[in-house]
Design a protein around this nucleic acid. Structure first.
Length: 260
DNA sequence: ATGGTTGAAACTCAA
């Protein structure tokens, strides 16, 4: 089973790139972030025509997450436990059937947190604390679990071309990096890092100043695996070539293949 | 040092 995560930066602006990539990569499950659409505005037809079931958790204008799956999903839940009733739409989870049992998958769009020292940064830290609590409870189930999404965290210096440029940014603050380490310390595996620990492996390149052409990127889209999912890990990938397509997202798809 | 870009929505914000 291949499970991908992709911050598509607007599903309606990206529908051609999304369908082209679905045809090319044919993933079993796709976690989308920043759909920037209400549920009723989500372009379902061209996606369901490719054989995908669709579960969305959108909002007007920005944020919004979704899960696409070839097999029908079960136990779909929207929102991160502890969210206020009017919280931003940043989390959706579902159980996905595999060849040998269920995999729990969530699509998360973690707060950006800029500028530091503001309420936005406080929200980022609070959000991660609640995610950590959620993850700890799910890990007790001892099931294959994939926490996929745009974490908006650069975990280590090798995850950016110019670490010094990010010293004042919420994505690289010690508190942000600590939140990521604490998640991993629960027993979760950073799938890309586990397979490839070389510097210069990125998932996001800014639209500005020719960042992609210079490979001035960062690695902020992650798939964290429970021990039971990690035991099933076959391979990982980053579909970097998609960033060079017409009208690209600033993020590219990142995926794992599990023997599930 | 500044500005460089994009999407959604609406005469600006979030990234």
């Amino acid at each position: 089973m291949r499970i991908a995560t992709w911050n598509i930066n607007g599903v309606k602006a990206r529908i051609e790139a999304l369908t082209a990539w679905l045809k090319e990569a044919s993933p079993d499950v796709v976690c989308l972030q920043e759909i920037k659409s209400v549920d009723e505005g989500f372009p379902r037809e061209p996606i369901s025509a490719l054989g995908y079931n669709i579960e969305t958790h959108g909002q007007k204008g920005f944020n919004g997450v979704a899960i696409l799956s070839k097999r029908p999903m079960e136990d779909v839940r929207r929102g991160l436990p502890g969210d206020e009733p009017d919280a931003q739409s940043r989390f959706i989870e579902a159980l996905v059937p595999g060849e040998n049992g269920m995999v729990r998958v969530c699509s998360a769009y973690m707060p950006n947190g800029n500028p530091i020292g503001t309420e936005k940064f406080a929200l980022k830290i609070d959000w991660h604390a609640r995610l950590e609590g959620w993850a700890a409870r799910k890990l007790e189930l001892e099931e294959p679990l994939v926490i996929a999404g745009d974490y908006n965290i650069i975990p280590e210096p090798i995850d950016t071309k110019y670490p010094e440029n990010w010293s004042g940014d919420a994505l690289y603050q010690p508190e942000s990096r600590e939140a990521f380490r604490r998640l991993c310390a629960l027993g979760l595996t950073d799938a890309i890092r586990a397979v490839d620990d070389r510097p210069g492996v990125f998932t996001f390149w800014d639209y500005q100043a020719g960042a992609f052409q210079k490979n001035n990127g960062i690695r902020i889209d992650h798939l964290l695996l429970s021990p039971e999912a990690s035991d099933l890990l076959i391979q990982v990938g980053i579909d970097k070539h998609v960033r060079a397509w017409e009208k690209p997202s600033d993020h590219v798809p990142v995926w794992v293949e599990l023997a599930a």
